[in-house]
Amino acid sequence: MHTAITIDALKVLDAIDRKGSFAGAAGELFRVPSAISYTVQKLEEDLSVSIFDRTGHKAVMTPAGRYLLDEGRALLEAAETLAHTTKQVAEGWETRLRIGFNSLLPAQCLFPAAQAFYNLGVPVDVQIVEEVFAGTWDALQSRRVDLIIGADQISKPAGNFATKALGEISFVFAVAADHPLANAAEPLTEADIARFPAAVAADTSRALPPGHAGIFRRQRTLTVSNIDQKIAVQEAGLGVGWLPLPRIQQALAHGRLVTKAVHEPRQPIALHLARHSEDQGKALMWFWNRLSDDPGLGQWLDTTST
C-alpha cells in the first residue's frame, strides 16, 4: 500500500524543526532550499493537510504538522534502529538474547557477566528469565530462551543440546529457628517431617514432566513461585523442606534458619550450561564462554568436582 509519508520527508521536517528554517534544513541535508520546499509541498498535497502556516513572515508548523513530526520521529528512530540491527545481524550478532536461569541460583549471579557484555557496546537486548526445576529445560526445548544456566541432568529431554558442567549445588533440610522441628531429635524421619507442610517452589515446566523432590506422601504443601519465596516461607515457619545451601548462608548465620539431619540425605545436583547445539550467535557464544568460568556464578557452586 502506497503512503505519502516517506522517511525522507520526515527527515526534512525534522531538520526544519531543529534548524528553525527551510534554509537551515537545506544546509544540514546538503540540498538546495527549493528541494526542501518541494518535499514539504508535495507532502502537504498528498496528505491534503497544511503542515506549515505561511500567512506570517515566517512559516510556522501547524498542529497537524507538529503531530506528524512528533509521531514521525518515532519512525525515524525505528528506521535507524532497523538499519543498525540489519548490519548487526549480517555481522553475526543477534538483536536479542534470552537467558533462562534455574531458580536454585540467584539472578544476581548473572550480573557481572551482563555488565561485562554491555561494556562491549554491542546493542543486543538481553532478557533474563527465571525458571524452576524442569522449567529450565522446558524453556530451552521450546525456544522460550536461547541459553540456560543451571540445567540439571535429571530432567534433560531428548534433543541435540550442547552442555557444559558448571559445578554442584548442595542441599540442606532447613526449618525456622522457632519451628517445632528445630529442637527435634536427629536424624529426622519421614514421620517427623510429614506432620508439617512442605514449602514447595512450583515447577515452571509447560510440557516436560514437573519435578516434585522432597515431598512425602500425604504431606500438606504450601506452594510458591520460586526459591526466593520458598526460603521466605521456611524462614517464617510456614513450611519445611530442602534448600540450596549457598542461598541460605546468611539466614543460617543470623539464626533465621537452622539445618537438621534427616534419615535420607539429599545428594548434590550437578548444574550445567545448555543451548541448542546448532545455535552459534555471537552474543550467545560470548555468554557461553564467559559463564563457563565466571566468578559471579562460581561463588554459588562447588566447582571442585567439575
Rank of each mutant, 00 (worst) to 15 (best):
S277T: 14
V258D: 08
G281A: 07
F216P: 02
D14R: 05
G167P: 02
I215T: 09
F196V: 07
F52E: 06
F52P: 02
L243M: 10
F52I: 05
D125Y: 05
T86K: 10
I248C: 08
W300I: 11
D70G: 03
N289R: 15
F101Y: 15
L166Y: 04
V124E: 03
C109A: 15
A23Q: 12
T3K: 15
Q280V: 13
A107N: 03
D17Y: 14
V233E: 11
E77S: 13
P157I: 08
A236V: 02
E94V: 04
I169H: 00
M1L: 13
K156A: 15
T39S: 15
K260L: 13
D146L: 09
A23P: 00
E264N: 13
T136V: 15
I51C: 02
S305L: 11
F173E: 00
G211R: 02
P210C: 09
F216G: 04
P63D: 01
A59C: 04
W93E: 06
S170R: 12
D138P: 06
P106F: 04
L252E: 07
A176V: 05
A25M: 04
M285Q: 14
E80T: 09
A176K: 05
S205F: 03
A23M: 09
G150F: 00
E77N: 07
R275D: 02
E168M: 09
R247K: 07
R73S: 05
A23E: 13
P33N: 08
D228I: 00
V175Q: 01
L105V: 03
T136E: 09
H179P: 00
G241W: 03
E131Q: 15
I227G: 01
Q127W: 10
A139Y: 04
I227F: 04
H212M: 10
F133N: 10
G281K: 01
R266V: 12
I269S: 12
P197K: 08
G237Y: 06
E77I: 10
I5H: 11
Y67D: 13
P265N: 12
L291I: 14
H179E: 06
A151L: 07
R206H: 11
G281R: 02
V233C: 13
C109M: 15
I154H: 06
L13W: 02
S170H: 15
M61R: 11
F196N: 05
S142E: 14
E186L: 12
D14V: 01
L297H: 01
A134T: 07
T189R: 14
I51H: 02
G237M: 06
W286P: 09
A283E: 06
L140N: 03
H276A: 10
H57N: 12
G237D: 05
P123L: 08
A35I: 08
L110K: 01
D8K: 09
Q229T: 10
L166V: 12
F30P: 00
A201T: 06
F111R: 11
R206M: 13
V124Y: 01
A23D: 10
I227K: 00
I7K: 12
M285I: 13
G65Q: 04
P209S: 06
S155F: 11
L271M: 08
L188K: 07
A232D: 14
G167K: 02
F133Q: 06
E94G: 05
L166G: 08
Q127N: 12
L75T: 13
R98I: 14
V129I: 15
L181Y: 06
D138L: 05
E71C: 08
